[in-house]
Amino acid sequence: MTHPADGPVVVLLDHHTVDGAPRLRPPVLELLTLARGLARHTGAPVHAVALEPGLAAAAADEVGRYGVTVVHDVTVGDADRHLTPVAAEALAAVASRAGASAVLATSTFENKEAAARLGVLTGAGVVSDATGVTREDGEVVVSKTVFAGTWTTRCAITTPLAVVLVKANAVPAEPVDAPTEPRTEGHAVTVSAGARRATLTGRTERAATGRPELAEAQAVVAGGRGTNGDFSAVEELADVLGAAVGATRVATDEGWIGHEAQIGQTGVTISPQLYIGAGISGAVHHRGGMQASGTIVAVNSDPESPIFEIADFGVVGDLFDVLPQAAAEIRRLRG
C-alpha cells in the first residue's frame, strides 16, 4: 500500500479508564488539533485509531468535535493489545489500509515502543518528543526540544509515511466550528508470531489519584528532599491550582510518594505552563525532565541552589512558610 501525501493523518487514541469505561486522555485533543493543521496542507482527512474495546464508540462524539472523519476500531484476536509490538502491528495494518501519510501519537514510553516497531515494519521515519508538526515543500517537518529543553531542532521526515510522537501541552486543543459525524471502520488484525514472542503475565492498572496526570497537567507542583517527607504543603498548593503533584527521585526513593511521581530524565518528562519546585536543588537529572516548562518557580532555602539558575520566579525561603501562604492568597484572590 502506498502512502500519498494527501493520505489521512491518523491519530492514535490514548485512553484511561474512568468509572470502568474508557475515556480519551486530554493530550489526544491536542494531537487532533495538530493533526488537523498538518492535514490542511494537502487537504487530507484526519482519522483516529482505537485499540481499546468500546473506545471507538465512547469517543466518537468527542473526536467528531475535533474534525475526525473516520475512527478505525481495531481488534487483535487473541493477542494481548497491551503488548506494544501488538499495538505496532495494529497501527501498521491501519496505516496501510488507509494509505496514511502520517501517524501521530502522544510521546509516552508505550507509544515510543509501538512507534519504533512501526518504523521497522513500514520503513517510516519516527521523531519523538515533538512540540509541533507541519508540512514544508511537501515534507513533514517536526519541531522538538532537545538537551533538556535548552535547544530546539526542526527535522524533516523524508519517508512517505511519517510517524510523530508529540509531547503533552504542545498546543492548546481547539475544536472545529462544525463537528463531523465520524464513520467507524472495524479491522480484525491478525498479529504475527514475532509480535507475541513475549507474554504479558500480569498487569495492574494504577488507581486514579483524582489529580491531573503528571505527564499531561498544565501545572505541576513538585517536592524534593526539602519536604522531609511531608508533602502536605505541596499537595495543598497543587490542589488550589488544579495541578499535578510531582517529585524528585530522592523523594520517590525515600518512599514519600509513588515512583510514578518522579520528574526527570529517568522519570516523567513534563512541559506544563507552570512548574513550581519546592525543596528541590535542581540537579541535572531532574532539570532534564522539567526545564522545557513554561514558567518555572522555585522555592528553596539555599540561595546557591542551581534551580535558581533556571527559575523565572525564585523565592529564597522555607517551603513550609511560602507554599501555604501562596495557597491562601490564591484562594483569597479568587474570592
Partner: peptide, 12 residues
Amino acid sequence: ELDGASETLAAP
C-alpha cells in the same frame, strides 16, 4: 512500571 500500570512479562 508504566505511567498507568505495573506489568510483568516473560519470554524464552
